[in-house]
Write a protein that binds this DNA or RNA. Structure first.
Lengths: 153, 153
DNA sequence: GTACAAGTTCAAGTGAGCTTGAAGTCAAGG
DNA sequence: CCTTGACTTCAAGCTCACTTGAACTTGTAC
């Protein structure tokens, strides 16, 4: 019979802090069964769900997006390979887009900045239409979060 | 004689909100001269500094790191090509590392997740030693921000 | 001279992704 | 019986990169 994991075991095995696990549960990313005492018990497959979350974060998805992805597969049953690969199919293009941007930035490092053309209003590097793969946190007009208000452009 | 730019002109030309420009000044990233009235006036070269900041953010540097980079070049004089390229030399490896990670993630998309080995404690994808190129905001143990406290590993 | 836009400072708010602290519950060991 | 430790909830705090609002001053247009 499959043993259930406590929250600290799950935290240790996944590398994700217990507080984060509770947070993920609150956000609907994972689920736990409860003991009579109210303590959480995690079935083993949750480890793969957590791995998926961590992985997706590295790719650049927000927790909300990850939740949407995870909602597509069975909440309790063990997901199949097919489930995973179907889920992840979406990301390939996203990763590619981000890689492409980084390549462009790298090129600009030697070309654009080096040659002095870096002036934002005409340089291709500052192309605001290219919104693929946001990086940092925080709302920045330049990064295309909002439909232009306040920044003028 | 080189005209000085107002803050709204600078915002429009750079695509960065005026409030952000003030914030950058507060953080020591850019400087402005003041009119008798106290209003900011920006010399033209500030546009390149701003461009540099925006660019560096896309690469993945924090404002603190960018400030450190910018501190290396003359605060008022126009930076030369050599200045820029020397500054940006550091980033190439960073970009490369991030690209490499994304490539690995992409590979894992079909391999690791697909085959079902994604279990975090042995999968290469969850290698916590690879800390290059953080993505999101927020302190996450897994991403290697802190020397392990609370997370156990 | 009087609007009104554009600028100023300063404090507080935002959103994502958590962490931390307080206060309480529950089970096992000595 | 009492301590210890692992767990619970809930509210509040934190970081980053800004934005927003209030209250006020300046510059420009008519």
């Amino acid at each position: 019979m499959a043993r259930l994991l406590t929250i600290s075991e799950t935290a240790r095995r996944s590398g994700v802090a217990a507080s984060a696990l509770r947070y993920y549960e609150e956000r609907g990313l994972i689920e736990a069964v409860r003991e009579g005492s109210g303590h959480r018990r995690y079935p083993r497959p949750v480890l793969r769900r957590i791995a998926f979350v961590v992985f997706a974060q590295r790719v650049g998805l927000s927790l909300e997006e990850i939740a949407a992805e995870l909602a597509k597969l069975p909440p309790h049953g063990v997901p199949t390979r097919r489930d995973w690969s179907r889920l992840s199919a979406t990301w390939s293009s996203r990763i590619d887009a981000r890689i492409a941007e980084l390549e462009r930035l790298k090129a600009g490092l030697t070309e654009c900045i080096g040659c002095g053309c870096l002036s934002l209003d005409r340089c291709k590097l500052s192309n605001p239409d290219d919104r693929a793969g946001r990086l940092g946190a925080g709302p920045r007009y330049w990064l295309g979060d909002r439909p232009a208000q306040g920044s003028g452009l």
